[in-house]
Amino acid sequence: MPEHDHDDQEREFDLRWADGAEHKEPSARARMLAARWKANPPEPQPFRADPDHVGRRRSPWVSTAIVLGSIAAIILVLGYAQFRAPY
């Protein structure tokens, strides 16, 4: 058996052994946040933003009118430019 295959089998065994461990050590970030929050717990946050912080949404009809008006203006400008172009 080549040495490379042997290393892969050992690595696979080590991963299975590590995944099967009952106790897993938290990540460095999790330990840092736990220490920070122990001294200064965070304020509870709502799942969704407060209505005061959410911008007022436009009606879909207003958005449609803006898009169609922009297209009409572009068509008119292009038509005028073609009409004014010398032949």
Rank of each mutant, 00 (worst) to 15 (best):
M1P: 05
P2Y: 06
P2I: 10
P2W: 03
E3H: 08
H4S: 10
D5V: 10
D5F: 07
H6I: 08
H6G: 09
D7K: 08
D7Q: 10
D8G: 08
D8E: 11
E10F: 02
E10K: 05
R11G: 06
F13M: 05
L15H: 11
L15Y: 06
A18C: 08
D19T: 13
D19Q: 15
D19H: 12
G20D: 07
G20A: 08
A21G: 14
A21I: 14
A21N: 15
E22T: 14
H23T: 06
H23G: 01
H23Q: 10
H23A: 07
K24E: 05
E25W: 09
P26S: 03
P26C: 04
S27R: 15
A28Y: 13
R29Y: 15
R29M: 13
M32R: 15
L33Y: 12
A34R: 09
A34I: 06
A35G: 07
R36A: 01
K38E: 05
N40C: 02
N40Y: 05
P41F: 00
P41W: 01
P42F: 07
E43P: 02
Q45C: 08
Q45M: 12
P46W: 05
F47N: 08
A49S: 14
A49L: 11
A49Y: 08
D50W: 09
D50R: 12
P51F: 00
D52W: 03
D52N: 02
V54Y: 04
V54I: 14
R56T: 05
R56K: 06
R56H: 06
R58W: 02
R58K: 11
R58P: 01
S59W: 04
W61T: 02
W61I: 00
S63V: 09
S63I: 13
T64N: 11
T64Y: 14
A65H: 08
I66N: 06
I66Q: 09
I66H: 07
V67E: 03
V67K: 07
G69F: 01
I71G: 04
I71N: 05
A72S: 09
I74D: 03
I74Y: 04
I74A: 12
I75V: 15
I75P: 07
I75R: 13
I75Q: 09
L76K: 04
L78M: 15
G79W: 00
Y80G: 13
Y80L: 14
F83K: 07
F83P: 00
R84N: 08
A85G: 11
A85R: 15
P86D: 03
P86W: 00
P86E: 02
Y87H: 12
Y87F: 07
Y87C: 05
Y87E: 10
